Amino acid sequence: SELMNSSKLIRMLEEDGWRLVRVTGSAHHFKHPKKPGLVTVPHPKKDLPIGTVKSIQKSAGL
């Protein structure tokens, strides 16, 4: 199965306009000026399962 580095996923979010608002432990929480909701990324993780990545991307509207 495909894995993604959390840094790469965070870069994709930031390029889309998401900004880090809070860190709780290894959970990084992002908000967007125009899009609704809060997106949480486990970080640092070298090997996020593709299912997790897809669900984060979906929440972020990517």
Score class of each variant (00 low, 15 high):
residue 49 P to I: 03
residue 55 S to T: 08
residue 4 M to A: 08
residue 15 E to I: 09
residue 47 D to I: 15
residue 54 K to I: 14
residue 21 V to C: 10
residue 55 S to C: 12
residue 14 E to K: 11
residue 20 L to C: 14
residue 4 M to S: 10
residue 48 L to W: 02
residue 31 K to I: 13
residue 14 E to C: 09
residue 31 K to E: 09
residue 25 G to A: 14
residue 13 L to P: 00
residue 43 H to M: 03
residue 7 S to M: 13
residue 46 K to W: 10
residue 51 G to E: 15
residue 12 M to T: 07
residue 59 S to L: 15
residue 25 G to Q: 14
residue 11 R to S: 12
residue 23 V to D: 06
residue 61 G to M: 05
residue 24 T to Y: 11
residue 53 V to G: 02
residue 42 P to Q: 06
residue 1 S to V: 13
residue 56 I to N: 02
residue 30 F to V: 00
residue 34 K to F: 12
residue 57 Q to I: 15
residue 36 P to W: 07
residue 21 V to I: 11
residue 37 G to M: 04
residue 47 D to Y: 15
residue 38 L to S: 08
residue 46 K to Q: 15
residue 6 S to K: 02
residue 21 V to E: 07
residue 32 H to S: 02
residue 36 P to Q: 11
residue 46 K to D: 15
residue 38 L to W: 12
residue 21 V to N: 05
residue 10 I to P: 00
residue 8 K to G: 10
residue 12 M to H: 06
residue 62 L to S: 03
residue 27 A to Y: 15
residue 29 H to I: 15
residue 8 K to W: 14
residue 38 L to T: 13
residue 9 L to G: 01
residue 19 R to W: 08
residue 56 I to W: 01
residue 30 F to K: 00
residue 43 H to E: 02
residue 57 Q to R: 10
residue 13 L to C: 02
residue 7 S to Y: 15
residue 13 L to W: 01
residue 58 K to R: 13
residue 58 K to I: 13
residue 14 E to H: 10
residue 7 S to C: 13
residue 29 H to A: 10
residue 20 L to G: 02
residue 60 A to Y: 01
residue 48 L to Y: 02
residue 56 I to P: 01
residue 48 L to E: 02
residue 33 P to V: 06
residue 32 H to M: 00
residue 5 N to I: 14
residue 17 G to Q: 04
residue 18 W to L: 00
residue 30 F to N: 00
residue 5 N to C: 15
residue 38 L to E: 12
residue 4 M to L: 08
residue 54 K to P: 02
residue 54 K to L: 08
residue 16 D to T: 04
residue 46 K to I: 13
residue 18 W to I: 00
residue 36 P to L: 08
residue 3 L to K: 13
residue 26 S to A: 10
residue 7 S to I: 09
residue 52 T to C: 11
residue 34 K to E: 10
residue 33 P to W: 09
residue 15 E to K: 11
residue 24 T to I: 10
residue 32 H to C: 02
residue 38 L to P: 04
residue 56 I to A: 02
residue 49 P to E: 07
residue 51 G to D: 15
residue 57 Q to L: 15
residue 21 V to A: 09
residue 25 G to E: 14
residue 41 V to G: 00
residue 9 L to C: 05
residue 38 L to Y: 12
residue 55 S to F: 11
residue 33 P to F: 10
residue 6 S to E: 01
residue 39 V to N: 01
residue 26 S to M: 13
residue 26 S to L: 14
residue 48 L to R: 01
residue 2 E to D: 12
residue 28 H to N: 09
residue 38 L to G: 06
residue 41 V to M: 03
residue 38 L to M: 12
residue 56 I to G: 01
residue 12 M to K: 06
residue 44 P to K: 03
residue 31 K to V: 09
residue 61 G to C: 06
residue 20 L to P: 05
residue 47 D to T: 11
residue 59 S to E: 10
residue 40 T to G: 06
residue 54 K to M: 07
residue 3 L to F: 11
residue 47 D to P: 06
residue 50 I to F: 10
residue 1 S to N: 14
residue 3 L to Q: 13
residue 35 K to R: 06
residue 60 A to F: 01
residue 24 T to E: 13
residue 10 I to Q: 02
residue 20 L to Y: 03
residue 25 G to M: 14
residue 51 G to S: 14
residue 29 H to C: 11
residue 25 G to P: 15
residue 23 V to M: 10
residue 9 L to I: 09
residue 62 L to I: 13
residue 50 I to K: 07
residue 20 L to D: 01
residue 19 R to A: 08
residue 23 V to K: 13
residue 55 S to A: 15
residue 21 V to R: 05
residue 34 K to R: 13
residue 59 S to N: 12
residue 1 S to Q: 15
residue 50 I to R: 08
residue 12 M to A: 08
residue 60 A to P: 02
residue 9 L to H: 01
residue 41 V to S: 00
residue 49 P to H: 06
residue 35 K to T: 03
residue 8 K to V: 15
residue 34 K to S: 10
residue 15 E to Q: 11
residue 60 A to C: 03
residue 3 L to S: 13
